[in-house]
């Protein structure tokens, strides 16, 4: 099988600051690819360039064969995305947010109705479908965003920290659904996460990025072997060092730190 995502020497500068420093990687058609890295490593910036939200400073990208810069509409037809940051319309209901998405992505009407039911069940929001999003809790909003991101079935799905702020039940549902989509429909999955066990369990290939540079690529076992460690978390720490990044400031960030504290004692032995 060929590569559905090809990235070559991709660079993004914000003024003087270089967030992504000439990264190259590819994702196999039908693969599940985890993009790991500490806070501020450049994961979201890379995803934004792949998904037409940011223009690269230099380098080339091919998404399903299309260049997001010059063939943006064709590239956009090829993927779906769950953003790291909020992206719902708070003044619409859950159902209206999903319908709007379905129409923008040209999902046929009867498929849409069926898919909406299916997704709302998956994220357990069926009984809240007619409520305004502004009245939802943070986790409920996140679940709705997941439901929306998976509503249409594109060739590639980008998930930028999809499980951030989710309870374990929903996390498990999400990953088994995503794996099912990948197995049954051959949808390529590109995701980021700070939960190493998720990457370990789900990803077929992993790339680790730090300070805008890719420091390692391979399978989970490959990375463990390369670093002489026994868990992906240890491999990750060996690759990226144990210094805490100074980026932690946003509310999402705090949420995540919270999540870590909660899970702190439950670390697998």
């Amino acid at each position: 099988m060929g590569n559905i995502i090809e990235v070559h020497d991709l660079t993004k500068k914000f003024g003087e600051f270089v967030a992504v420093k000439g990264v190259s990687f590819s994702v196999e058609d039908g693969g599940i690819f985890a993009f790991l890295g500490p806070n501020g490593a450049g994961k979201s910036t890379t995803i934004k360039m792949l998904t037409t939200l940011l223009r690269p400073t230099s380098g080339t990208i091919r998404i399903n064969g299309y260049d997001p810069v010059t063939d943006s509409d064709l590239a956009r037809k090829s993927f779906g995305i769950v953003f790291q940051d909020p992206s719902l319309d708070d003044d619409l209901t859950a159902l209206e947010n999903l319908e709007l998405h379905g129409v923008l992505y040209r999902v046929p009407k009867d498929t849409l109705t069926k898919r909406i039911d299916e997704m709302l069940t998956l994220v357990e929001l069926s009984d809240r479908r007619n409520d305004f999003v502004r009245d939802f809790s943070g986790g409920m909003k996140r679940r709705l965003e997941i439901a929306r991101g998976l509503l249409h079935h594109p060739k590639i799905i980008f998930l930028d920290e999809p499980t951030l702020g989710l309870d374990p039940q929903t996390r498990n549902h999400l990953w088994s659904y995503v794996q099912k989509l990948n197995a049954n429909e051959g949808i390529t999955v590109f995701f980021t996460t700070h939960y190493m066990e998720e990457a370990d369990r789900v990803a077929k290939t992993i790339a680790v990025i730090d300070h805008g540079l890719i420091v390692a690529q391979g399978s989970s076992d490959g990375l463990k072997k390369q670093t002489g460690t026994t868990s992906l978390e240890d491999a990750f720490l060996a690759l990226t060092g144990s210094a805490i990044r100074d980026e932690a400031s946003s509310s999402l960030e705090r949420l995540r730190t919270h999540g870590r504290m909660w899970r702190g004692s439950g670390r697998r032995s």
Binding site: T52, L53, F83, P86, S87, D89, L104, Y105
Partner: peptide
Amino acid sequence: WDRQFGFLKETMVAPVS
């Protein structure tokens, strides 16, 4: 507002002109 509250991204990646 849409930019501030994030909804703008949803329309920006939509595959419509």
